[in-house]
Design a binder for these strands. Structure first.
Lengths: 209, 209
DNA sequence: GGCGCTGGCCTATCGACGTTAGATAATCTA
DNA sequence: TAGATTATCTAACGTCGATAGGCCAGCGCC
């Protein structure tokens, strides 16, 4: 009997529907507009129903955050290995910032922006290895350039911080940048690293397309 | 008659007391714990009193934010001109990050972290010129080094983003850094710029006295 | 000195929030 | 078909930000 399976499948569908609705509302009207009652209205159920699928409102946001990190990991992993190391790193930087552009509400949930803060201790984040991807790409750049004295740990932290800072300030309306310049600066950050510690050729095939 | 003056002075003192209490509570228990009733309790008044001094809860947070930017401007302006350009830039970077360490709740209000988000359109931020200070310090570095092709606008944006990203990730518990390494990386970012575009001497007098 | 007014402060209250309890109806098991 | 399980609802609780209306001390004026 596939009864249990059907129940579980429907349960999963309902969870997905809730998560999608939360993102829709957050993107349209901001995280302050994401209330249990509003979400219940949107999916045409009464509000207590949500507690059959999530423990709390924070648990929902925590799930959006976790899914967001998984999404970022996937986008970064999808950057083709075939690119020259510098271009590859730049493409990863671009993906990072691009997530903030195409899914701002998810990015906000991931990094506690826009009033989407949740308790880190209560809903711990499972690591996704995104930073490892960046570190590997950086090592490839450095290997090509032959600079031995680079502290990859420090450099990934700084580059990650620079990219996140760009998006964070952009989403807060504090950077005055438009999306194109934002993406350009993201690549600039990666290219600078490549120029400093590895190899950079302006004649490499461009990233986009 | 100094009556009106006294009234205004007392009003200002009450405003300051409210702002200080808000920061105390936010630092101790997080911005989620900052409620009108809680603040009223702490200052031993009834809650509606707060609306005699601020239009709304958001107006209070907006004031904390504005004061925070003024504080940052002052801290950066206090970096002595006498330092060599590279050291000066590094000291500014350090001050930026240090604000996030010594006044995390203010930093959160400034950049919409920790659930302290406020509506930018409703409570617009008056610019404080902090970025100009950084730009000037950068120009001094570049002038010394003689590199003409540096886009100061881009570089201040990137450096500002890197520093902010470091603090943002740190305050979110996403960086795994301790305060000392955080400050070290902040200086590292500035030193990298100096090494790249200007002059850096490891024998310069260290920043921290 | 007594009267009216202003301003500071209070209690009571509103609608919306997250969340829980308890009842009802639909569905599955045996 | 009887009993158990599940899905869903309405009603409610305590807390939130914010408002309304009343009380009362201190001030200016006659």
């Amino acid at each position: 009997m596939g009864l249990k399976e059907r129940r579980e499948r429907e349960r999963g569908q309902m969870r997905d529907r809730i998560l999608a609705t939360v993102c829709d509302v957050a993107r349209a009207d901001g995280w302050a507009a994401v209330t249990i009652r509003r979400i219940a209205d949107e999916i045409e159920y009464s509000s207590p129903i949500l507690y059959q699928y999530f423990d709390s409102k924070d648990a929902i946001i925590a799930q959006v955050r976790q899914d967001g990190f998984a999404d970022l990991f996937q986008r970064m992993g999808a950057v083709p290995d075939s690119l020259p190391p510098g271009r590859r790193l730049a493409a990863m930087a671009r993906e990072n910032v691009n997530l903030g552009l195409v899914r701002p509400e998810v990015y906000q949930a991931m990094f506690g922006l826009g009033g989407a803060q949740i308790d880190n201790a209560k809903y711990p984040l499972r690591p996704t290895g995104t930073l490892d991807l960046v570190a590997d790409a950086m090592r490839a750049v450095v290997a090509e350039g032959g600079d031995e004295r680079v502290d990859i740990d420090n450099e990934t932290t700084i580059m990650g911080a620079a990219l996140h800072g760009l998006v964070s300030l952009y989403l807060n309306g504090l950077s005055g940048l438009d999306p194109d310049r934002l993406l350009g600066l993201a690549e600039h950050v990666a290219e600078d690293f490549a120029r400093r510690h590895g190899v950079w050729s302006d004649t490499d095939a461009p990233v986009g397309s």
